[in-house]
Simulated scan of single mutants.
Amino acid sequence: MKPVALAIHGGCGVMAKSDLREEEWEAARADLAASLRAGWAVLSKGGSALDAVEAAVVVMEDSPHFNAGYGAALNENAEHELDASIMNGADLDAGAVSAASRIRNPVKAARAVMEKSGAVLLTGAAADRFAERCGLEMVAPDYFTTQRRQDALAAMKEHAKAGTAAAASEAEKHGTVGAVALDADGHLAAATSTGGYNNKPEGRVGDSPIIGAGTYARDGVCAVSGTGQGEFFIRHVVGHEIASRIAYRGETLEMAANGVIREDLKSYGIGAGAVAVDGAGNVCAPYNTAGMFRGWTAGDGALYVASHDEVFCVETLEASA
């Protein structure tokens, strides 16, 4: 049986365990599990890695627990500017949107950019108009707003006034969602979606829509989706760097991903994390913060989710065909 695998993250901007009631943590983990089920439903029937990562990310974009789509961060003007990308490891085709404000599921728009636009990245109002022409579901910008993000924006503005922004919690700063997959045909894919960070400058674009930085996939090597302070992911071209360590230095997936997330980025003192899968179906989910929403499942169908150190085996799904 050919290996298949799926891994997701809901961002490394995870608050301390004491900041939420246990039922709230359970709700977030339940949405992670739902995301995995959506992606696995594709893979277990012989579907493509590209379809699987899109399906998994859509579930997290629709959840208020993660910083993407519904529940996304607010910029300095209390507005939403959403970024997303998707990449097909089979042919290195990719699509992305940035600073969108009306697309319910930005990852779907990224897929449409890849397949229908002739471009890789569309931005701002033009991205919204393109998505609308493609028949994607559009919403009013306030659809994305939740009380938690309004509270986080207020907290970050207070930090800015006091000059303590660097000391803000990861949950106050940022978050991202993403998925990586290997399908039964040996193809890899990755997708990432985010609202950016709370109180970000108007027009700021992070790594999530930048191919090679926050999202990267190459058949036979690996697929990567990152989360953290995007400026550093762009500078280090994190997704491509992890793939290059595997392809050119012969490192294992775990060595490469840990080397970038836990070593290369360590000196900057920033929060960072990623999920990655290689061509053999190995999965890695390194992070350097107190926690990272994450989950994975592979050929045996066992579904795992986690937010902090403890990993929960939720159920065993139907094994892949």
Score class of each variant (00 low, 15 high):
Val4Lys: 00
Leu6Arg: 02
Ala7Glu: 02
Cys12Gln: 12
Cys12Lys: 10
Leu20Ile: 07
Arg21His: 12
Trp25Ala: 06
Ala27Met: 14
Arg29Trp: 10
Arg29Val: 09
Asp31Ala: 11
Ser35Leu: 02
Gly39Phe: 00
Val42Tyr: 03
Val42Ala: 12
Leu43Trp: 03
Leu43His: 11
Ser44Gln: 14
Ser48Asp: 10
Ala49Gln: 09
Ala49Tyr: 08
Leu50Val: 11
Val53Ser: 08
Val53Met: 04
Val58His: 10
Val59Ile: 15
Met60Cys: 08
Asp62Trp: 00
Ser63Arg: 04
Phe66Tyr: 10
Asn67Ala: 03
Tyr70Val: 06
Gly71Ala: 06
Leu82Phe: 07
Ala84Ser: 15
Asp91Asn: 15
Asp91His: 08
Leu92Cys: 04
Leu92Val: 00
Asp93Ser: 15
Ala96Cys: 13
Ala99Glu: 13
Ala99Val: 15
Ala100Cys: 15
Ile103Met: 02
Ile103Leu: 02
Val107Ala: 02
Ala110Leu: 09
Gly118Gln: 02
Leu122Met: 14
Gly124Cys: 10
Ala126Phe: 06
Asp128Pro: 13
Glu132Val: 02
Arg133Thr: 12
Glu137Asp: 07
Asp142Leu: 01
Asp142Ser: 03
Tyr143Glu: 14
Thr145His: 01
Thr145Trp: 01
Gln147Ser: 11
Arg148Ser: 01
Gln150Met: 08
Asp151Ser: 05
Ala154Asn: 14
Ala155Ile: 06
Glu158His: 13
Ala160Ile: 14
Ala160Asn: 14
Gly163Ser: 13
Ala168His: 14
Ala168Thr: 11
Ser169Trp: 05
Glu170Arg: 02
Ala171Cys: 04
Val177Asn: 11
Gly178Arg: 09
Ala179Gln: 07
Val180Leu: 04
Ala184Asp: 13
Ala184Gly: 15
Asp185Pro: 04
Thr194Asp: 05
Gly195Ser: 12
Arg204Ala: 12
Val205Leu: 14
Asp219Pro: 01
Gly220Asn: 14
Val221Asn: 08
Ala223Asn: 12
Val224Lys: 00
Val224Asn: 08
Glu231Gly: 14
Phe233Lys: 02
Ala243His: 06
Ala243Met: 03
Ser244Lys: 03
Ile246Asp: 07
Tyr248Leu: 00
Arg249Asn: 03
Glu251Trp: 02
Glu254Arg: 08
Met255Gly: 12
Arg262Cys: 15
Glu263Leu: 02
Glu263Gly: 00
Asp264Cys: 02
Leu265Asp: 07
Tyr268Val: 10
Gly269Phe: 08
Gly273His: 03
Ala274Tyr: 07
Val275Tyr: 03
Ala276Phe: 04
Val277Ile: 05
Gly281Tyr: 09
Asn282Glu: 07
Asn282Arg: 10
Val283Pro: 04
Cys284Gln: 05
Pro286Tyr: 05
Thr289Arg: 13
Gly291Ser: 10
Leu303Val: 01
Tyr304Lys: 00
Tyr304Met: 01
Val305Gly: 00
Ser307Phe: 10
Ser307Gly: 08
His308Pro: 08
Asp309Val: 04
Thr316Ile: 01
Glu318Asn: 09
Ser320Glu: 08
Ala321Tyr: 05
